[in-house]
């Protein structure tokens, strides 16, 4: 597979996952704020901006983090490189450069999604926003389904999964970090009904509410943290994501080495350890050698900071290992 193609597939997948996360976050927050309206509590749209990681850009462009500006910024602001519309554009642009590789139907749905979001963004009033976020999720599910059922499970597939799970791990970590920061300072909230609503919303934001209930029944922050960091089987826990990414990376490396075994190409990579492998092991070790209790004792924020730093190192190493092939490194 061409390095450029692998790179495009990787980013297409990250952007698709990213836009799915954002639309979930907004949608859940919207309903949460409706609940709060009943008890006259102040609405909170700010944390969403912090969870997106683009708070600096936001406050350069908007005065207050109220509902209207946050929704605009995260959904339709083309100046925000991580808004839904920007993600859709980038996902589609990347898909377009690899459309001969990905299943045609997947390209078509991605293309349709692009035109859908573009048309929605043109509307002056967004009264039907619920439908919009619902549609985004539906499109994304369709795309993921098409990929799952019609793409050969070779390199392209594993680059796709690698990107998807790294992106997802990042978004879960951010959400957890921000919510933890904004909810915990007030000890009277802990284990109160208010707490259950707030942490329930966190779970819903990553589609984890129902599965969490089946396992823990009662909602409290320790269990929510445990579930979202460590649950072995839930597809939106950090640990699950890292394991899946780890597996896909190993598959990619195995495919490359196997192929080189057959062809014994001169410019081979097989002799040395691939940098991405090292970094991924670091990331996995960081999770595996720890537990929730310990993390909450030292500070979740510090832990997540470190986690995200390591995620970035993995991302960089993937770029250097697979996408940026240079002649001189082999001669």
């Amino acid at each position: 597979m061409l390095s450029r193609v692998a790179n495009s597939i990787y980013w297409m997948s990250r952007y698709l996952e990213r836009l799915d996360s954002i639309s979930r976050f907004i949608n859940v927050n919207y309903f949460l704020m409706l609940e709060k309206a009943a008890t006259d509590e102040p609405t909170q749209w700010g944390p969403l901006i912090f969870a997106s990681g683009d708070d600096k850009l936001f406050f350069e462009r908007y005065k207050k983090s109220d509902e209207k500006s946050v929704i605009k910024f995260l959904s339709f602001d083309e100046e925000n490189p991580n808004s839904i519309i920007s993600c859709v554009k980038n996902a589609r642009e990347n898909a377009r450069t690899v459309r001969e590789i990905i299943p045609t139907e997947q390209w078509e749905v991605t293309n349709e999604l692009y035109y859908y979001v573009k048309d929605e963004a043109k509307k002056k009033k967004h009264s039907e926003l619920q439908d919009f976020y619902k549609a985004i999720k539906a499109y994304n599910n369709q795309i993921i389904g098409l990929i799952h059922n019609s793409l050969t499970h070779d390199q392209a597939w594993h680059f796709l999964k690698l990107a998807q799970y790294l992106e997802r791990a990042d978004k879960i970590a951010r959400l957890l970090d921000v919510k933890y920061f904004s909810l915990l300072p007030n000890p009277t909230y802990v284990d109160s009904p208010y707490d259950a609503i707030e942490w329930g919303a966190v779970l819903k934001s990553v589609n984890a509410f129902q599965m969490y209930r089946q396992k823990y029944h009662r909602i409290n922050y320790e269990n929510v943290s445990e579930f979202l960091i460590y649950d072995r089987d839930f597809p939106r826990s950090m640990s699950f994501c890292v394991n899946e990414a780890f597996n896909s990376l190993n598959k990619i490396i195995a495919i490359i080495k196997e192929d080189e075994g057959i062809k014994s190409c001169k410019n081979s990579k097989s002799s040395s350890e691939i940098p991405a492998e090292r970094r991924m092991k670091d990331l996995k070790y960081m999770l595996d050698s720890n537990d929730t209790k310990n993390i909450l004792a030292i500070g979740l924020h510090e832990f997540i900071d470190d986690f995200q730093m390591k995620l970035n190192e993995v991302d960089e190493a993937i770029y250097n290992s697979f996408f940026a092939l240079k002649e001189f490194s082999f001669t």
């Binding site: 061409l2 390095s3 390199q155 410019n267 990579k269 092939l325």
Partner: peptide, 8 residues
């Protein structure tokens, strides 16, 4: 070709 597997 520059591929993920090296040059082809």
């Amino acid at each position: 070709l520059r591929t993920t597997k090296g040059f082809r």
